[in-house]
Design a protein around this nucleic acid. Sequence first.
DNA 1: AGATAAGCGAGACGGTACGTCTTGTCTTCTT
DNA 2: AAGAAGACAAGACGTACCGTCTCGCTTATCT
Lengths: 191, 191, 191, 191
Amino acid sequence: MVEKGRPRSEKIEKAILSAAYKLLMETGFQSVTVESIAKEAGVSKATIYKWWPNKAAVVVDSFLAAAQERIPMPNTGSVEKDLLLQLGNLSDFLETDKGRVITELIAQGQFDSDVANAYRTRYFAPRRLAAREILQRGIERGELKKDLDMELSIDLIFAPLFYRMLVTGAEIYPDFIKSVVSCVLTGIKVP
Amino acid sequence: MVEKGRPRSEKIEKAILSAAYKLLMETGFQSVTVESIAKEAGVSKATIYKWWPNKAAVVVDSFLAAAQERIPMPNTGSVEKDLLLQLGNLSDFLETDKGRVITELIAQGQFDSDVANAYRTRYFAPRRLAAREILQRGIERGELKKDLDMELSIDLIFAPLFYRMLVTGAEIYPDFIKSVVSCVLTGIKVP
Amino acid sequence: MVEKGRPRSEKIEKAILSAAYKLLMETGFQSVTVESIAKEAGVSKATIYKWWPNKAAVVVDSFLAAAQERIPMPNTGSVEKDLLLQLGNLSDFLETDKGRVITELIAQGQFDSDVANAYRTRYFAPRRLAAREILQRGIERGELKKDLDMELSIDLIFAPLFYRMLVTGAEIYPDFIKSVVSCVLTGIKVP
Amino acid sequence: MVEKGRPRSEKIEKAILSAAYKLLMETGFQSVTVESIAKEAGVSKATIYKWWPNKAAVVVDSFLAAAQERIPMPNTGSVEKDLLLQLGNLSDFLETDKGRVITELIAQGQFDSDVANAYRTRYFAPRRLAAREILQRGIERGELKKDLDMELSIDLIFAPLFYRMLVTGAEIYPDFIKSVVSCVLTGIKVP
DNA sequence: AGATAAGCGAGACGGTACGTCTTGTCTTCTT
DNA sequence: AAGAAGACAAGACGTACCGTCTCGCTTATCT
């Protein structure tokens, strides 16, 4: 059966997401208003609420849609080098405007579980997968313990960066990453 | 020098903080309004704004004032046991209502640097100090490397719990803590 | 050109004006609050501020909207009788609740020129026109001087009533009106 | 019996009235706040409320205290000339800042009968007395009707000026005064 | 001289209205 | 039916002013 009436315009959806993303980058999550998105996109507020349940949903969506760039998958033959590259990329990213934004989204996730689910499945899940592959190859190469708890290991690797970003606010200098990888590895590596 | 004018009423200050804390626990950060605090405390809104610049400031203050209970300082003679106790307490705490609240405050800290500064200096700083002592004793007993980077080590220990709370939302079961401590230790322990 | 968007609801506008008018009559200008108007009208405060710049504007508007009843135009064939009827009506009116209200609006007009402009053009202008016609007919009938300064004469006729209402607070008894008309017509000098 | 305790400081009372008057002239009735009077006078708010029941009372008092300058009593031998001088002075006065202020006080009198009583007895009563004398002399000289209603006549003379000031807002040019006096004296009817 | 009591400055406080802002829904006409 | 425009309800925000109060200090008279 064919849908009746005017079909949903994909152009409009994109305009909304672009506008939301632009404002998110420029002014931060709290300063973005649905009104401002509508104006920037040349769109009616009702149209936004037609497709997203609330402001947080649009804004998160706009961020995640824009974050679909390729996730780098380092494969140097060494777990340590791979992890250093991976964490280096992440920490570089967290310094950018986008990095600031993701902490705002994580913050919003504490108040809105839909937001939390969104960034978990669409943002973090694929990135953890990349880390998983690095570790998997390390196991196969005999660099890492066979019975490694993968999820735990990934937590140990990523957690310190987010902990500093979100909780302590301490600077994330390059040596910090080196030290994190070194410490975690010496722990999980075959002795 | 003697203070001039009618002195600030401590009773009122306490009433405000108690009211804010009560509402924070009952309804969560976002649902607390300055109006509701004023009503609950039997106080004028203007009085609240006289002493705190905005809602976030009062609410955070109310939490931190209530969080001044003794920080447990385990001292079993073993770094591993001490850390297990410390992290066990923390994870128990994070399961309670207060635990939920602190994630909300951390969230708020992403939007308001005054809030972030408040919980960093008044909440986390003393708790990190406790961890520091545990590690220090470990070094003195020869359990840990002499040239240990303390801040980094504390980050490695605490980060995974907060990472799960704030980012992945994964459950924090008892074995998780054991594994975290074990992994971090094997790395920083003298071989 | 057709208006875009949802049209302004006339029902709501009327509800606001009715509510404001009701409260104005019941409690007086100073006791009316925008909040109370909103509540009485079952309307949002923002809607009121959308169409009126402040409380005074709504309240004055509500009064003037309600004061659009027919202005009596006596035409007895005698200037004196016409003026007596006109002033009698006015003084009866000033004794009512509405009369008290208009002094409050005039008072408000001293602080807010928009208010003053409103009652001048919408309330007094049409009433002065009626008086003008009475005088005009008097001139045509040869009762009054041909070169009469109309504005001045109208001032002389109306002023004493308002002067007593606003300034001296003296009672306005029926004979007072008779005397005013008589004096204005013939003067106080010995003939 | 002698009063116990520290006596009321006249200096302070004067400072309050001066401050209130200064602010009244500079910023108008509504913009004067008790706070600002206290600050300007270097006095405590409580001291103000100790001697006056509310803001309006102080401000009106400050005005009336300052308005105690001699009231001119023209006596030219002609009622017309006397009235022209008297009204001329009044209209000159109403053009000044003080003139604006008195309309504000009259306005305030509509909401506060204490204010109204104050300016009636302390401001208008003595000025009406002066007019009364003018008329009395006119009667004695045979210029005016013997059975003249004095209060009414005074109303007729003063009312138009205040009517223009308070109600119509029309300009009060010199000829206007001439015409008022002339009309009141001789009437508008064809002789 | 010391006690007593009111005057006073400073400023905290309760109360209450203001006018603004944002969210999410609803209504009308246009495409 | 989708969409633009924009009206609307709800309700929190932070500000302002009023008039009252609570301190401690000062300035008088009374004992």
